[in-house]
Amino acid sequence: MRNGIHALALITAAGLLVVSAVATADDYPQGCVDCHRISEKGSGLRYEGDFRIQPLLAQTGHRWLKKIKTVPNDCTKCHSDDSDLPLATIVHLVHFEKPEANVYTTEFGGKCANCHAMDAPAGEALVKSGPKNW
């Protein structure tokens, strides 16, 4: 698992060409898929190239994500909290491990709220989600 995570973190870092600007409004209302996109000219994205999750995962040898429709909800069919690889652990490690070198913390501010939202009336933290973009 760790190897896969390291590979993914490296690929992630290598794929990023970072522009420095601090996000103020919510740039990622749908979480994962709003950041993990193909960067086109004028898109204002902070990297160049194909940063979608499917191609990133393919590079780590992860199998083809045929049945996924909604990200990250559908990932938890395999990566449930009770599984050997809970999604929260994987995704937290990819984005926060070695924070002094991790692009997510150094260039994207390491903000929880890029992926999470708060349902204030219920007092419950949520994970933002959206339809797959591959």
Binding site: L87, A117, K128, G130
Partner: peptide, 22 residues
């Protein structure tokens, strides 16, 4: 300890605001 409670559809509340240093 932290189990992500629920995964819900997008349009719910989203958060903005300053970046708190760790």
């Amino acid at each position: 300890m932290m189990r992500v409670a629920r995964i819900l559809a997008p349009a719910l509340l989203t958060l903005t605001g300053g970046i708190a240093l760790a």
